[in-house]
Design a protein around this nucleic acid. Structure first.
Lengths: 149, 149
DNA sequence: TATTGTTATACTCTATAACTATA
DNA sequence: TATAGTTATAGAGTATAACAATA
């Protein structure tokens, strides 16, 4: 398979998968979360106290966009936002108890749904998908960070 | 790798890849296209005369959403929309000359960019990604169509 | 001056609900 | 009645530009 053919497959498949995930994230859990909201919560679960810039970097969006997304999460009581006392330009973002709970619920139910879809495949094919995903993520992360957005 | 682990990888990778594609689609070509707009043009290139319902099905969205997306493409002169004379409830959608041209440009430049990102990998890994994508697309298409949206 | 973050503006995607026109 | 499509409304993502506060 040529790189171009592979690129075509990525362009065909990724939007389909994205829609699948988005729909599950919205409908499945008790709390509706958009994909960027979910990913923000995931980051804050891993790095409590992250700044807005770190969120923007993780989401791959501008700070203005990340600021709006974070503001919505703060407004819904899922994230706590306070000024970093050591560096007063920064904000320190953390999950609230509610945010941590909703994150776990949404994560579990979405993982569950995706895993159920995969249950139609033999374990071998599941492993191939996983491997392909890992490779793709790695190469895109490298390329994206070398651009410098 | 368990199905759950694979699901996690899909959930991590797909949004990253989606953002990459979206950005290239917006910035790279002469004409900015959103991902749904691009995918609509791709469908009409393959099935000239498709109805709105076919577009909605292909995009995986409601007819209302597809109607808006199509209206934008018609407004920009990329798509021609006319009533099907045999079945006056339906519309027949086709690419205009301009639409066909822009589709080719956007497709080539996006494929090119994705392929360039893949050039960091050995051919073997590119093949693994392609295979993973094909398997994922197939399983999601099956699951989605058996839901019946 | 440079960096962090916010706000205003504008555009797109998306769904639901209510509608029109056709079958 | 049922189907194809549109429109109104509302909410979210996204970028750019202009801005305030801090370093």
């Amino acid at each position: 398979m040529t790189r171009r053919q592979c690129a075509h497959r990525i362009m065909d498949t990724v939007p389909v998968a994205m829609r699948f995930i988005r729909r599950e994230m919205r409908g499945a859990a008790a709390v509706e979360l958009s994909v960027p909201q979910f990913r923000t919560l995931v980051l804050l679960g891993r790095r409590p106290g992250a700044s807005l810039s770190e969120v923007a970097e993780h989401l791959g969006v501008t700070k203005a966009t990340a600021s709006v997304t974070v503001a919505r999460l703060v407004g819904r009581g899922l994230v706590d936002r306070r000024t970093d006392p050591e560096e007063r330009r920064r904000i320190a973002l953390t999950l609230t108890g509610s945010g941590a709970g909703h994150l776990e619920l949404a994560r579990q139910s979405t993982v569950e749904t995706v895993a159920r879809a995969l249950s139609r495949l033999p374990a071998e094919d599941v492993a191939k998908i996983g491997e392909g995903m890992a490779l793709l993520q790695q190469v895109l992360t490298e390329v994206t960070s070398s651009h410098g957005h």
